[in-house]
Design a protein around this nucleic acid. Structure first.
Length: 796
RNA sequence: GCCCGAGUGGUGCAACGGUUGACACGAUGCCCUCAAAAGGCAUUGCCCGUAAGGGCGUGCGGGUUCGAAUCCCGCCUCGGGCACCA
């Protein structure tokens, strides 16, 4: 008999599945209660090809999906390509090829790779975000947000790489350096398009409560949104004007010894006194050049020469420009309380500013709470209560107001790049900013000879006259197109809405279909996307819901995060040269073995270490499984006790549901060993049951092998259309248990006993044990702990 | 610096507060073979002991409990996230 050839087997069945469209669903007939929208994060088709990290996630999600399918759910498992964006464009720049032709090739390659993994993708619903048929609707989504006042254009500082001559997305930063060239980034101020995500800060935060997400994911979003409740305190300036500061600790108001503004402060020239102006501007210019991240942790600053007046005491307080103050947060200025804030304390030390302790506790800097001292009428109060009282006082006297602040910023979607959807807006001298009408979508990205970033702050599209010059949709006069493209994260912020309706050219998504198919039932994703993609998608979904374009506000009620696959304890990376390429393994050991190995090596949600050595165990397992089923059965005479089979069905199902694929596989391995041992003794009925059940349990993990075995068993195609086997709950119960006997908590014997033994008999058995008696040393137990079917602990 | 997560055999890892080490890798021995590969079977936490048996053992130090890898407190190490958000 020929041995198991995983490569031949996978090729044959993949061809058959594709021919039969086995994994395509008829969405028209689907009820919301039977569908299961099984979503994975779609890849961006970059140069390197599919990473083994993708393979890892997709293996887990696909195994779950296949199992749910066998459990009777109609599993919708689409896939697509996040093909726009800087990653793709950078590679195109590197090889000097037009991104359009390049993307066509890489997408094709990815399709092949994804296909060969043997996952149950529904290719009929594929989306490619760089396809005009897709980005037409990305532009449409933008226009909905624009019309709702959620897309606005305003001037703002952005991160700039002086070496690559381009704006960088935040996700392209490693600390304060450009991911690509390692150059330290600077800031630049440009007129930009923003999506007003901060308008949804509260709902994004509060909505987390009801989501079935890992706690770490919720925490990350919570911290990213960063809501703080506090008070905005006004300080009158000597010589006129006032400075508003934000604080979460109004109870420390009497400890203020200075005010500080960031180097980016807009009114700096007016703030500084004449004699200080030159120094202030020099310092601010230098600090702005460094950018916030370039300033390190040094505590530098210069005095503006200006003084502010304390709102309660009227005391004169110097106003400083300080590098550590973050622009763009709160009111843009802080009240310096060195005694009760570590940063202010450090700054006060270098600037020789006084430290006044007003909360009792440890020596400064003391950031805890306590009784107020030296605080005028509020002295003696507990600081928590004082915070409220002082806030009231400020509000009553018109010197401040309660306020809520967020770390979350509006989403900067402008990119001075080529490879993205043009932002669908026309500028007209007469009409101003005019949105492109829906019927004129898509605004096509023109083919250009030179798509290199210009370094001028303008997109390469700005130098394409045929693109720029257009007709104003409002008045018919001459107009200029917006030449920026939108962030690639906007493409992916709504792609899951498109999948069911993919291919429709009349709507972005069909309302009736969407109501039935969404939201997503399970999203298998990565931690690195939580504070970006998942957040953007939630924001866009909420906004669309408010526009009555969607019947739900949360796109991903359930998310699970895969762990990371390491190599030799280190993250795989090109620079380390330790990237595992899945293709190589699919071609040598086969997709089934690769999938199972990835799932076996570690718990799915924790990740683990890749090792070629470990793969051998899985290959052996597959080969044994193949031999078990493929080798003919010489019937024995016994109706073998099938309890182990029932237990395996229970365990494997339970563990798949919990995403504990590693233990599910070990249960399958145990079942295999048991089946091999007992096969010769089994009568025909018994063997049929065992061989079929084993194959069904294997199907979610090793779809090709299981299909092959199923066909060899003479069963009707396809194993993937079969129901998951049932088990008898009674048969799962053990008949015999190991009863551990402890003396004073130390294990002294292990007795074989019938399950369900009562206390009396168990204790009697324990006392009868020779080993136990030796340790009892003739004494009577004072106290006996009995855990049924587990433990008898005799305490003397 | 702050916030999470994790520390268990030579290795990856498994264990509702109840036999620590399932499953697998590796190693050792044996079977098969002219031989090797493949395959099969067995052993495999550490220490003492020929053995029976005993002692120790889940990063470290305490605690709770009849009983702790698991719960609590304090440390150490590694991994990840955020990095001056007042």
């Amino acid at each position: 008999m020929a041995g198991y050839d995983p490569i031949e087997v996978q090729a044959r069945w993949q061809a058959r599945w594709a021919r039969d469209h086995l994994y395509e669903l008829d969405l028209d007939r689907l009820r919301p209660d039977e569908k299961f929208y099984n979503l994975v994060e779609f890849p961006y088709p970059s140069a390197e090809g599919l990473h083994v990290g993708h393979t890892y996630t997709y293996s887990g999600a696909d195994t779950l999906g296949r199992w749910l399918r066998m459990r009777g759910r109609k599993v919708f498992q689409p896939i697509g390509f996040d093909a726009f964006g800087i990653h793709t464009e950078n590679y195109a720049l590197q090889v000097g090829e037009d991104p359009t032709t390049l993307t066509a090739r890489t997408v094709e390659r990815y399709r092949g790779q994804l296909e060969r993994l043997g996952a149950a993708w529904d290719w009929r619903h594929e989306v490619v975000t760089s396809d005009p048929a897709y980005y037409r609707w990305t532009q449409w989504v933008f226009l909905r947000l624009y019309r709702a006042g959620l897309a606005v254009r305003r001037e703002a500082p952005v991160v700039w790489c002086p070496s690559c001559l381009t704006v960088l997305a935040n996700e392209q930063l490693e600390g304060d350096r450009c991911e690509r060239c390692g150059t330290r980034v600077t800031q630049r101020t440009l007129r930009q398009w923003f999506l007003r995500m901060t308008a949804y800060a509260d709902r994004l935060l509060d909505g987390l409560e009801g989501l079935d997400w890992p706690e770490t994911a919720k925490r990350l979003q919570r911290e990213w949104i960063g809501r703080s409740h506090g008070v905005e305190v006004d300080f009158e300036l000597e010589g006129g004007g006032r400075l508003a500061t934000f604080t979460t600790r109004p109870d420390t108001l009497f400890g203020v010894t200075f005010l500080a503004v960031p180097p980016e402060h807009p009114g700096l020239a007016e703030l500084a006194t004449a004699d200080r102006l030159a120094e202030v501007e020099a310092f601010a210019a230098e600090q702005r050049q460094l950018g916030l991240t370039g300033r390190e942790r040094e505590r530098r600053g210069v005095s503006t020469g200006r003084y502010a007046l304390h709102p309660v005491t009227g005391e004169r307080l110097p106003v400083w420009v300080a590098g550590y103050v973050v622009a763009g947060y709160g009111s843009g200025a802080v009240m310096g309380v060195p005694a009760h804030d570590e940063r202010d304390f450090a700054f006060a030390a270098t600037a020789a500013l006084p430290v006044v302790q007003v909360v009792e506790g440890a020596p400064p800097p003391f950031t805890g709470h306590g009784r107020l001292v030296e605080s005028g009428p509020f002295t003696g109060m507990a600081s928590e209560a004082a915070a409220e009282t002082i806030a009231d006082w400020l509000e009553q006297h018109g010197r401040g107001r309660r306020a809520t602040r967020y770390r979350l910023h509006d989403w900067l979607i402008s990119r001075q790049r080529y490879w993205g959807p043009p932002i669908p807006v026309v500028y007209c001298d007469g009409c101003g900013t005019v949105p492109v009408p829906d019927e004129q979508l898509p605004v096509l990205l023109p083919r250009v000879d030179d798509f290199r970033p210009t370094g001028t702050g303008l997109s390469p599209l700005a130098s394409v006259p045929s693109f720029v010059h257009t007709t104003c949709p409002a008045c018919g006069g001459p107009g200029r197109r917006e030449t920026e493209v939108s962030d690639t994260f906007l493409d992916s912020a709504w792609y899951f809405l498109r999948y069911p309706s993919a291919g429709r050219d009349d709507v972005a998504w069909d309302p009736e279909l969407t109501a039935r198919m969404l939201p997503v039932d399970m999203y298998a994703g990565g931690l690195e996307h939580v504070a970006r993609h998942h957040l953007y998608a939630r924001f866009v979904t909420m906004a669309l819901r408010d526009l009555d374009l969607l019947p739900f506000a949360e796109p991903f009620p359930k998310i699970r995060l895969h762990g990371f696959l390491l190599q030799d304890g280190a993250k795989m990376s090109k620079s380390r040269g330790n990237v595992v390429v899945p293709d190589d393994y699919v071609a040598t050991v086969g997709a089934d073995n690769l999938r199972m190995y990835l799932l076996f090596v570690a718990p799915f949600e924790e990740g683990g270490d890749w090792s070629d050595a470990g793969l051998a165990g899985i290959e052996r397992f597959s080969a044994r499984a193949y031999r078990l089923i493929a080798e003919p059965h010489q019937p024995g005479s016994e109706a073998v006790d099938l309890r182990p089979l029932h237990r395996a069905v229970a365990t494997v199902g339970r563990d798949i549901e919990r995403l504990k694929f590693n233990t599910a596989l070990s249960a399958l391995m145990e079942l295999l060993r048991w089946a091999r041992q007992h096969k010769p003794a089994m009568d025909d009925a018994c063997w049929e049951r065992v061989s079929a059940t084993f194959t069904l349990l294997l199907a979610p993990f090793a779809p090709h092998l299981a299909e092959e075995l199923w066909s060899r068993l003479g069963r009707p195609y396809s194993v993937h259309l079969q129901p998951w086997p049932a088990y008898d709950p009674d048969a799962v119960q053990e008949r015999q248990v190991t009863l551990v006997v402890q003396v004073n908590g130390k294990r002294r014997d292990a007795l074989q006993a019938p399950a369900g033994l009562g206390r009396e008999q168990a204790v009697a058995m324990a006392l009868a044990s020779e080993r136990v008696r030796r340790h009892l040393d003739g004494r009577e137990p004072r106290h006996v702990v009995f855990v049924p079917d587990r433990v008898v602990n005799l305490v003397i």
